[in-house]
């Protein structure tokens, strides 16, 4: 479903702030893989997702989604393959627009937008059904501005918008990090439910090692812009937080410097 071949990316090359974010990254995802991604700060996790989404271009290498080489496609053209949820709950929705307007925008991802009405009544009914699945009471607030919703509600809505038009690949960039523990658990459960029900291929960055172990069928650990550990199947089910921390120290030669991950 996804092939990343020898991707390099350096930010601010030739300056004092030079940062090699991706260092010959290779990764292949199979259809239906749900991969959790862990790693210290600056390991290149978010950069990897942003490269897949085309937020900025790669320096070298190729990215292939579902057999299509998208390396040179701009962000808005890659959107037709991708569903995305961001760390910042404000980023995935248009605050000044209504819930139904946001959903109508998402439901036309990858389509040419013409001069037809943006929403019809049939869609409104579908949106209501989908929103009631979130169990947040949003189904009766179709014409409420998204800016009025809480961070958790907005993130759940963004998640719904990312999957309502089935993506080839779902990218979750620490999408529960900014939420309180209870809401985070709820959004995480919803993500898991959508991914298993729709048989989506998904990548989820998380700082919570327990979540990384509990969810998905595959786990990758990143350091210095490369994948240093890739575990899947039965082997993944046996993972423990202690094992991952040990593995990190052995493979990277450094302590896992991330308070959030350790506290969890």
């Amino acid at each position: 479903m996804l092939e990343i071949k020898d991707v390099h990316k350096t930010f601010n090359p030739g300056t004092i702030n030079e940062k090699k974010a991706l260092n010959g990254l290779n990764l292949t995802l199979n259809d239906g893989d749900f991969v959790t991604v862990i790693g210290g700060n600056g390991a290149g996790k978010s950069t990897m997702l942003n490269m897949i989404a085309g937020v900025y271009p790669v320096d070298s290498g190729s990215i292939i989604i579902d057999g299509v080489n998208v390396t040179k496609l701009p962000e808005h053209k890659r959107a037709k393959y991708l569903g995305r949820v961001f760390q910042d709950p404000m980023m995935g929705t248009a605050a000044d627009m209504w819930i139904e307007e946001n959903m109508a925008l998402a439901s036309r991802r990858g389509q040419v937008r013409g001069l037809k009405w943006a929403i019809n009544n049939k869609e409104r009914e579908q949106f209501k059904t989908m929103l009631s699945e979130l169990d947040l009471g949003l189904e009766n607030r179709l014409s409420a501005k998204v800016g009025l919703l809480s961070g958790g509600q907005r993130q759940a809505l963004t998640l719904l918008m990312a999957v309502m038009k089935k993506p080839k690949l779902l990218l979750l960039d620490e999408h529960t990090a900014a939420l309180d523990p209870k809401t985070a658990a709820k959004v995480l459960e919803l993500s898991n439910k959508f991914i298993s029900e729709e048989h989506l291929t998904a990548m989820m960055i998380t700082h919570n090692m327990k979540d990384a172990i509990a969810y998905g069928n595959r786990l990758i650990m990143m350091n210095n812009g490369q994948i240093i550990l890739d575990v899947s199947g039965e082997e993944k089910k046996k993972l423990t937080v202690e094992y991952l921390l040990d593995a990190f120290t052995k493979l990277s030669g450094a302590e896992f410097a991330n308070d959030r991950a350790l506290l969890n």
Binding site: H76, A79, A94, M97
Partner: peptide, 26 residues
């Protein structure tokens, strides 16, 4: 016009360009 698909995509462009691009809007 601003009630059509294209009009909506213009409003999204002004409101949140990142979100607009993530949803395939040029």
């Amino acid at each position: 016009f601003f009630g059509t698909e294209l009009g909506h995509s213009l409003r999204a462009t002004g409101c949140n360009p990142s979100m607009a691009r993530a949803n395939g809007i040029n």
